[in-house]
Amino acid sequence: MNDWVLIQSLVVAVSTGTPVVLAGSGAILTQRSGVLDLGVEGTMLIGAVTGFWVTTATDSPFAGLVVAVLAAAVFSMIQGVLAVSLRANQVVVGVALVIFGSGLSSFIGSQGDPPLARRFSGAIFTPVYPESVHDWPAVGPLLLSHDPVVYMSWAFVAVVQWYVFRTRTGMHLRAVGHDPASADAAGLRVSGMRYLHVALGGAAAGAGGGYLTLRLFSDWFDDMTAGMGWIAVILVILASWRSLRLLVAAYAFGAISSLGFTLQLLGWNIPTELLAILPFLVVYLVMVFVSAAERRSQMPAALAEPYFRESR
């Protein structure tokens, strides 16, 4: 493999992995608070379709991204109400949100004249730095050729890492996810913290979804996330709830997903249907391997357990 192929493959891996970086970092915040939001796939679709809608109306991908983030945060409040206040089974709620988000986004996509699903946005995110910079050896394509959302995702990863481990609120967040009864006794608002971080996770998933329609595909079609939301939730587990590790895992996912692109550059021909299996197969095998080798889990101890003050 020559250097050019390697660098082009890494660039594609970054853009393919970016939705997962965003959604996954958000999911870290949600899961750290003790709520397992499996509905990320549905939330991303809501972000994708609303972002696309606003962008086709305003010609501004930035406006689209803002709306995607807000709409997804509102959508994720369904998870908040059901999981935090009504103490519902979070696996069932997650699956329900994926079904609902998939149906609702497809419904929204069928509205309008012509329907969103048949429009082409035109306005998408473009690289921040001028073309001439992209040709600088190595750093040009790898660091300077990206669009604003990629740089935002790097900033977000750093902020999440700092927030969770270096701030007082972050410590409270970990406490709420680890031992809500003690956190409650210490005077923390368990439900409030959980609602807030479900919303933050939803907002980030919305940004990830928005990136699909406003950059990666520059188009809307039904169920376009194709499992990315599920992958994001699972990579959070593999990354031990740490955003820097998640970044690496998400780009590894991006590289595996875009392997077809790399192989094409090398002149190999492998059926796309087989390549499509690869990321899911790898995640399955890694999950089995990791759980077989694992000694001690870093999972928030109260993950997916509703908190009921009197039953502690």
Binding site: G42, I78, V81, L82, L86, R87, A88, N89, V92, V93, V95, A96, L97, V98, I99, F100, G101, S102, G103, L104, S106, F107, G109, S110, Q111, D222
Partner: peptide, 25 residues
Amino acid sequence: VSPAVVIVIQGIILLCVAGAQFFIR
């Protein structure tokens, strides 16, 4: 009418039922 309405209704049914368990417990 968009066929997606059916998926939406299925999703809402599951959400409502999951939430309703609260009033059972």
